[in-house]
Computed example of a mutant assay.
Amino acid sequence: MHLHKIFYALVAIHTVQSYNMYQTYKLKSPLKLTNGFRHKTIILPKGSVVTGLNDGTGNLQNIDSTTLSIKNQKKVFKKLGNWHLSFAMIKNNDGATQPYTRNTSFSINSLASFPQLSVKKAETQYDLAATTLPFISVTADNQLAYHSHGGIYQATRYAKIKKFKRTHSTITYYLSDPLKGVTTKRIKVGKAYQYRLNFKLGHVFQNRDSYNGDAGGYDITVNSDKQAFLMM
């Protein structure tokens, strides 16, 4: 089974939602979004690529702000503030009627192909670690984004994914530039250089409750050369 399928098969097992957050869509019309307080709004333009939870009848209930293109991210965070999920202002919005069908470093078969991964540190034995630890994600415009704090959702810095490869157990990205916080290998491609980054599934470990240290759920290690991340 391919790496991205393993990622999201595991996610699907642990969700009660029939329509998951990792499906990708291309908006057929502008989509008005709001934050949790519903007193600020912004409109994503027609053609924007998004991931989000749909209601089963073709309407988006929310979108994941961290997977938006960098351009759309900047608009959303500037207007709505620091929200991981932005919410559809209008219930019947048809936002989930047009799957995003291009196969890219961001999406394959209309499914987001790379999860949010937290940097693995000693704190990751606890179940709330992702609220503070740095994390990486892939955006709709094929950027690898680094977020310096788990509770701040706008990308801190990012690099363009020039090409990618998938095998049965790995995903390899070739970046346009090095990305601080992520270990890459500089390789020559023609007369220029790219920065290679490999991801491979590692071991599964049990985390602990942040409050009393009791055994909790399970997380998956994702190895990248000498660096480790985890999918929580």
Rank of each mutant, 00 (worst) to 15 (best):
M89F: 14
G52D: 03
G95R: 02
T24L: 02
L53R: 07
T101W: 07
T101A: 09
S29T: 06
K91Y: 11
K46M: 07
K75N: 10
I63C: 03
N62H: 13
L53S: 11
H84F: 15
L85R: 14
N82I: 09
A88L: 14
Y25G: 04
G52P: 04
K32V: 14
Q61C: 10
L31C: 03
A12P: 05
L117S: 07
S29P: 05
L85N: 12
P115K: 08
S65E: 02
N72Y: 05
T67D: 03
K40T: 13
F77R: 02
T51L: 00
L117A: 06
I63R: 00
T66E: 07
L44M: 04
N103V: 02
K79Y: 09
N82H: 09
K78H: 13
Q61E: 13
V119W: 04
V16Q: 15
L27F: 00
K75M: 08
T104A: 01
D94C: 13
F106I: 00
Q116N: 13
K121S: 15
T24F: 01
L60S: 04
V76C: 01
T104H: 02
N54I: 01
S113Q: 02
N20T: 14
S113G: 06
I13S: 11
T41I: 09
D64A: 11
K28C: 08
G56Y: 03
S65N: 09
L68I: 02
L44C: 05
S118G: 10
N72P: 08
Y25M: 06
K46S: 08
D64R: 12
I70G: 12
K46G: 03
Y19R: 11
I70Q: 13
Q23S: 15
I108M: 07
N82R: 10
S105G: 05
N109V: 08
F77P: 03
K40R: 14
S107W: 00
K28P: 07
A122Y: 11
S29L: 06
F87A: 02
N72F: 01
K40H: 12
N109Q: 09
I70L: 15
K121E: 09
K28F: 02
L10T: 14
L80C: 05
A12R: 09
H84T: 13
T57W: 05
L68Y: 00
V11N: 11
F77W: 06
V76K: 00
G36M: 07
S18E: 13
D55N: 10
Q23D: 15
F37N: 11
N35V: 03
G58C: 03
K121P: 05
L80E: 02
Q98H: 14
A9D: 15
T15A: 07
L60M: 07
I13Y: 06
I63P: 00
S118D: 03
T15Y: 05
I63Y: 01
F114K: 01
H39T: 15
H39F: 15
K26F: 07
G81T: 12
S69C: 10
V16L: 13
K78E: 10
H14M: 13
V119C: 10
S65M: 11
L111F: 10
T24Y: 01
Q61M: 12
N35Q: 05
T57E: 05
H39S: 15
L10S: 14
S29M: 08
S113D: 03
V11L: 09
H14W: 12
N35R: 04
G58N: 00
S110T: 01
L10W: 14
T104W: 00
N62I: 09
H84Q: 15
